[in-house]
Each structure stands twice: as structure tokens, then as C-alpha cells.
């Protein structure tokens, strides 16, 4: 019996543990498999925390990226599912918290909107200025990696290769960061415009 067959005959949980152990050693195929099977588990953990359907994808994405960063903390002698669920639950709570913060932002902006006349050009210019400042503020509050990706690829209009050479980051990492940053910015401004 080959290793792969031996793994396939195991319980799904033990199979995932074996895959993650192999991924810690650099096995890309095992890594993509275990991440693929993790998606359903992450969604289940997020739903248990009370995350709404519209936010599940965000939690999945954040959790997969966190798993990638902390994969060295997984101990193959212990349950992979418990390790993953703990990270997913934490990311779900983070998502719920940031949603709460956004809710307060929107309320605040509505208040500003109601008290703001935008009939003349001066007011419109001021509003455009305010929009730009809000975008700058939003970019400034992004995590460092995402901010760097937006600045390099979005604002300075560098190519992936140039940005990679400039920052010393892999093009894949830059792409992931830009993707996350755009998603975060869209989520932030969605409903405010």
C-alpha cells in the first residue's frame, strides 16, 4: 500500500493532520489539499460564531491567510481540526467586530451628510476633498503588507515585477495583498457612497 492509499483509508481528520504535517515540510500538493478541505470547516466554525452568509467568504480568506502565517505552530500529534477551528473562530470574531466598527462609521457619516449642504461648487469640492481624505485614511489603516501593495501597484503604478524587486516580496504575496486590500476598501466604502 502506498502512503497516499494509507492516508486515504484514514479518517478525514487524520488525513488532514497528515497533509498539514507534510505541508510543514514543504509539500505543496498536500498543502493545497488540506486548505481545500479546510474551507468547509472554516465556514462551519464561522457560522457557529454567528457570522452572516455575506461575511463567510471574508472569514474563509482571512483564516486561510492566518493558517499560512502560523502553520509552524501546528503540532501533528494533535488535532488539525481543533487547531484550524480555533483560528477560524478568532477570525470570525474579528470579522464581527470590524463589522460593528463599520456600522458606527456609517452612522457617523449619515449624520455628517444630513448636516451638509452640497448645492454649491465649494461644498462639492470640499466633499471631493473629504472623499479623497477618507480614501487616504482607509489606505493608511490597512495592514502594512496590504498598504504596501496598494501603494506600489495602485498609486505608483509599478508592475508586479518592479514592485517585487522594490519590496523584496514575492509577486504572489503582492497579488494576494492587493486582492485583500481592494476587498477591504470595497467593503469599507460599500454603502457609504
Amino acid at each position: 500500500m502506498t502512503d497516499a492509499e494509507a492516508q486515504a483509508s484514514d479518517s478525514p481528520e487524520r488525513r488532514r493532520a497528515a497533509w498539514m504535517a507534510a505541508a510543514q515540510g514543504g509539500d505543496r500538493l498536500a498543502y493545497e489539499r488540506v486548505l481545500g478541505e479546510s474551507v468547509a470547516l472554516i465556514r462551519a466554525a464561522a457560522r457557529r460564531q454567528g457570522v452572516g452568509v455575506d461575511q463567510l467568504d471574508d472569514v474563509v480568506q482571512e483564516t486561510l491567510i492566518t493558517v499560512h502565517r502560523v502553520r509552524h505552530t501546528y503540532d501533528p500529534a494533535r488535532s488539525y481540526d481543533a487547531w484550524l477551528s480555533a483560528i477560524a473562530s478568532r477570525r470570525a470574531v474579528d470579522a464581527l467586530r470590524s463589522q460593528g466598527r463599520r456600522g458606527r462609521h456609517e452612522l457617523h457619516d449619515e449624520f455628517a451628510y444630513d448636516n451638509h449642504a452640497d448645492t454649491d461648487d465649494v461644498a462639492a469640492a470640499a466633499e471631493r476633498e473629504q472623499e479623497a481624505r477618507r480614501l487616504r485614511d482607509a489606505i493608511a489603516t490597512l495592514p502594512p503588507g496590504q498598504r504596501e501593495a496598494v501603494e506600489q501597484l495602485g498609486l505608483k503604478e509599478r508592475s508586479l515585477a518592479e514592485a517585487s524587486a522594490d519590496t523584496g516580496r514575492q509577486t504572489g504575496a503582492l497579488k494576494v495583498n492587493l486582492h485583500r486590500a481592494m476587498k477591504a476598501l470595497r467593503a469599507r466604502f460599500h454603502g457609504e457612497s
Binding site: A23, Q24, G25, G26, R28, Y31, E32, L35, G36, V39, A40, D57, V60, Q61, L64, I65, H68, R71, H72, T73, Y74, D75, P76, Q170, G172, A173, K175, V176, H179
Partner: peptide
């Protein structure tokens, strides 16, 4: 059906995979 979004992320994370030193107990 699972959405397609995680697929591309999983592939780019796979592309960035490097061996890691496991944390001691």
C-alpha cells in the same frame, strides 16, 4: 456549491509555501 474565490487564494498560498521549522513543544 463552494464559491470559487478560495481556489485562487489556495493556489497562491501553495505557490508561496516554504518548509517551516515546527515550534518545539
Amino acid at each position: 456549491a463552494e464559491p470559487r474565490l478560495p481556489e485562487s487564494l489556495i493556489q497562491s498560498l501553495g505557490a508561496q509555501l516554504t518548509p517551516v521549522r515546527r515550534l518545539p513543544p
